[in-house]
Write a protein that binds this DNA or RNA. Structure first.
Length: 567
RNA sequence: CUAGCUGUGGCGCAGUUUGGUAGCGCGCUGCCUUCGGGAGGCAGAGGCCCCGGGUUCAAAUCCCGGCAGCUAGACCA
């Protein structure tokens, strides 16, 4: 492609709206432009990268036995009501009516549509297993779209859905997708880690997220420094050993602690440490009051609690309602003497000795509170947020926490949708069985941003070769012979099947160099009189900065050889 | 949704405090010079100052009400 004709509006300055590197570079390098928050037009260079990634993903999916289809963007409300998600997904969906007043939404995901599709077609165990996928634009009215294409309201996604006879079959299908994903990301030239994840509103059993490690990531991941344990902090556990604290139990004592409500206040006031306090949180779980106990130095992981209680919503009880729900006082609530309330405690609470806890009386706390002696808890479960330095749940190693960008997510859905939508088959015995499902997503456009987050420097993008919009860029400097030779090389490389750009614009050398760096083409070939006098053309590898002279007579082969070596 | 910040040529911004001619840099067009890391000169084009209402002789500027963008939180495959 000739750059003189390429629609490539590069920017010298950073647009004010862009905060993170990938967003800035996607705008500066002329990959995309925004229409409104979270909605983008992809320009020629950007769209080429998207198509590259799509093709790599498509190949991995096809090889795994999945078959490509294309489902509608417009979904009917009745189908979503049937699955029960019309209200649950609710505000995330763009909803509208047609001229007859019938309700629709734009598809935020396609479990409903695909289940509706196959429930009519799949009748026999002979039709299973089956895996169907599509690459298509999804629409979600995100509460807060941000970071460019990282969280868009409209984005391209690859979504696949597997259908099996039973859970053993699902386990197989899931593993096949897991492997296909691993391969697809590697083929894109990205370093991606699979981590255990929460299933969220998708529902289902096991789940893994595929994370590109990057500072800009919205997710936090806990890694073991020794073994391969990795999990989203939403679900990460820490190794737990019920420690025998041999400290002698001291007698319970009530002390006046005027106005000392927060853990920090208490520890300072009583000159103790947070680990020696019991943090008591009064919450409403789908409207029902629950008292949650944690060690004072731990944070509640709300997702763990929601999953344990199997509720949708957790809200703190308002200060003035503590009397009504707990017969206690905000800031001074505690487990000792509390009656008629469900109490759930984190595992680490059980072994605390001689702790500080609220006395359920304005301006009073108890000293020397001992679980088991001073109060009883039926439900001890893992509720805390892991922290860097915690012990790994699998081995003796310790956990570290890093930011990551979720570029893929796979779920074992089980029978959630097949049951609500009635997708069944007949087994060998003619008995009706519910189809077991899995779903598997890759955020294609998000992957573009993640790739940039992982591969850039101060001069611009550094595309991995596999997803670069072009592999080679030729810069002719000056008129005459250099131009002629550049044109010749351009034609020959094209003929050899290489995707090549030639910067035939009437621009100064500096402009061409800077644009070439900015748009991140892996291999740059400069043809100018200076080197031609030595009988060579100059190659520069974008990623390493390495410069190589290629003898003019071997130009084409030299470029092809170099390309082979570049990542 | 809550809070904060911001809306002025394509992009980055100044001007708003104290109302009175709409400005700068980049980019764009033409000509000349220059030509290996975002050149220089000359001459130009391009603006409903986010929208609506109000105050005033006069509003980019003051007041009221919207809308949009960004950031943080909550939320979120």
């Amino acid at each position: 492609m000739r750059m003189s004709r390429l629609y490539l509006p590069t920017l010298k300055e950073i647009p004010a709206e862009a905060e993170i590197v990938s967003h800035q570079l996607m705008l500066r390098a002329g990959l995309m432009r925004s229409l409104t928050a979270g909605v983008y037009t992809y320009l020629p260079l950007g769209y080429r990268v998207i198509r590259k990634i799509e093709e790599i993903v498509r190949q991995a999916m096809d090889e795994s036995g999945a078959q490509e289809i294309l489902m509608p963007v417009i979904h009917t409300a009745e189908l979503w009501k049937e699955s029960g998600r019309w209200d649950r997904f609710g505000p995330l969906m763009i909803k509208f009516e047609d001229r007859k007043g019938r309700e629709y939404c734009l598809g935020p995901t396609h479990e409903e549509v695909i289940t509706d599709l196959i429930r009519d077609e799949i009748r026999s165990y002979k039709d299973l297993p089956l895996n169907l996928y599509q690459i298509q634009t999804k629409v979600r009215d995100e509460i807060r779209p941000r970071f460019g294409v990282m969280r868009g309201r409209e984005f391209i996604m690859k979504d696949a859905y597997s259908f099996d006879r039973d859970f053993a079959g699902l386990d197989k299908s899931y593993q096949i997708m897991y492997d296909a994903y691993t391969k697809a990301f590697a083929n894109c030239g990205l370093e991606v880690r699979a981590v255990e994840a929460d299933t969220g509103p998708m529902g289902g059993k096991d789940s893994h997220e595929f994370m590109v490690l990057a500072e800009a990531g919205e997710d936090e991941i806990a890694f073991c420094q020794q073994c391969d344990y990795a999990a989203n902090v939403e679900r990460a556990e820490a190794g737990f050993k019920a420690q025998e604290d041999n400290e002698e139990m001291k007698p319970l004592e009530k002390v006046k602690t005027p106005g000392q409500k927060a853990i920090d206040d208490i520890t300072a006031f009583l000159n103790t440490e947070a680990g020696k306090t019991i943090k008591s949180l009064g919450l409403l779980a789908d409207g029902e009051p629950v008292l949650v106990l944690l060690r004072g130095d731990d944070q509640l992981n709300e997702i763990k609690l929601k999953n344990y209680l199997d509720v949708l919503e957790l809200t703190p009880v308002a200060d003035e309602d503590f009397t009504e729900y707990f017969n206690s006082v905000a800031g001074f609530i505690g487990p000792v003497g509390l009656k008629g309330v469900r109490v759930v405690a984190d595992l680490r609470v059980k072994s605390i000795r001689n702790a500080v806890a609220g006395a359920n009386e304005e301006d009073y706390h108890y000293l020397n509170v001992n679980p088991g002696r001073d109060f009883q808890v039926e439900e001890y479960v893992d509720l805390r947020m892991v922290r860097a330095g915690d012990r790994c749940p699998r081995c003796e190693g310790s956990l570290e926490i890093k930011s990551g960008i979720e570029v893929g997510h796979i779920f074992k859905l089980g029978t959630k949708y097949s049951e609500s939508l009635g997708a069944t088959y007949l087994d060998e015995n003619g008995k009706e069985q519910v189809i077991v499902m899995g779903s598997y997503g890759i955020g294609i456009t998000r992957l573009v941003a993640a790739a940039i987050e992982q591969h850039h420097d101060e001069n611009g993008i550094i595309w991995p070769k596999a997803i670069a919009p072009y592999q080679v860029i030729i810069l002719p400097l000056g008129k005459g012979k250099a131009e002629e030779l550049a044109e010749g090389l351009y034609e020959k490389l094209k003929a050899a099947g290489i995707e090549v750009l030639i910067d035939d614009r009437d621009e100064r050398a500096g402009v061409k160099f800077n644009d070439a760096d900015l748009i991140g083409i892996p291999l740059r070939i400069t043809i100018g009189s200076r080197a031609l006098e030595r009988g060579v053309i100059e190659a520069k590898i974008r990623r390493t900065g390495e410069q190589i002279d290629i003898p003019l007579v071997e130009a084409v082969d030299g470029v092809l050889d170099l390309l082979e070596k570049i990542e």
